[in-house]
């Protein structure tokens, strides 16, 4: 089943996939344990007129065991997840490149610094639905929305973040493989939600620089100081 996962191309992918697989095996084991037990019981204890069911109201030891064991497993799982979550969402590494993405019905606007070398000013270079980034660089993006809530989703990167009007949400990622990846919008945003997609073009550094020059991108480095 897990073979349906798209190839992972960001630094997030291995971390998330590891957890995904872990939970897959864990829940798979629980699944088989429960379903097989159910089938076995149903088969073994099927009705026979000459038999009488055992008269028991329960067993406290068992109750404790099957409360405590799942509780421990789940809490451990929560702690393991926590550290991955922190790596992705809380510890934002220093960026190599900064840009903005603004969602609107029904396009992704990519904002690059204009001649002034700053993102988010009037002279930004803006393009619809095509996001170009260099490979193996930490990209920092300020995610905005002009109208309704959208969600920036790159399946191959295992990355998703809602874009909320009135909020500027800082996100970051580092793609590990050059290529062209789809950016579907993952949050219902109106009749054009289906079909709202852009492309993430991940270029090797030199190609990216050539592209940036051609499009008069002011600065590719994190010129505007980051905090």
């Amino acid at each position: 089943m897990m073979s349906w996962l798209p190839e992972g191309v960001s630094t997030f992918a291995p971390q998330i996939d590891r957890l995904f697989y872990g939970i897959y095996y864990l829940t798979g084991a629980v699944f088989f344990a429960v379903q097989i037990t159910l089938l076995v019981f149903v088969f073994r204890y099927r009705h026979r007129p000459d038999r009488r069911a055992e008269y028991t109201h329960g067993n406290t030891t068992l109750e404790i065991v099957w409360t405590v064991v799942p509780a421990i497993i789940l809490v451990v799982l929560a702690f393991v997840s926590r550290s991955t979550w922190a790596n992705i969402k809380e510890r934002i590494p220093p960026s190599d490149f900064e840009m903005g993405v603004t969602a609107k019905q029904f396009n992704w606007e990519a904002h690059y610094a204009g001649p002034d070398g700053k993102v988010g000013t009037d002279d930004d270079v803006v393009m619809d639905n095509d996001v170009y980034v260099p490979v193996n660089k930490t990209i920092r993006v300020v995610l905005r929305s002009k109208d309704v809530i959208h969600s920036f989703f790159v399946p191959s990167m295992r990355f998703k973040q809602d874009a909320v009007p009135g909020h500027e949400i800082p996100i970051w990622f580092k793609v590990t493989k050059p290529g062209k990846y789809e950016i579907p919008c993952a949050e219902l945003c109106g009749f054009g939600h289906s079909g709202m997609r852009g492309w993430l073009h991940v270029l090797p550094q030199e190609e990216f620089e050539a592209w940036a020059k051609e499009h008069k991108i002011g600065s590719t480095a994190p010129a505007a100081a980051h905090g």
Partner: peptide, 24 residues
Amino acid sequence: SMFVIGGLSGIYMASTPVDIYIHD
């Protein structure tokens, strides 16, 4: 039998990093 399957898929989503991917 079916509730267990549904409950177990809830565990994937409860794990925040996995939910990044499977949310929506």
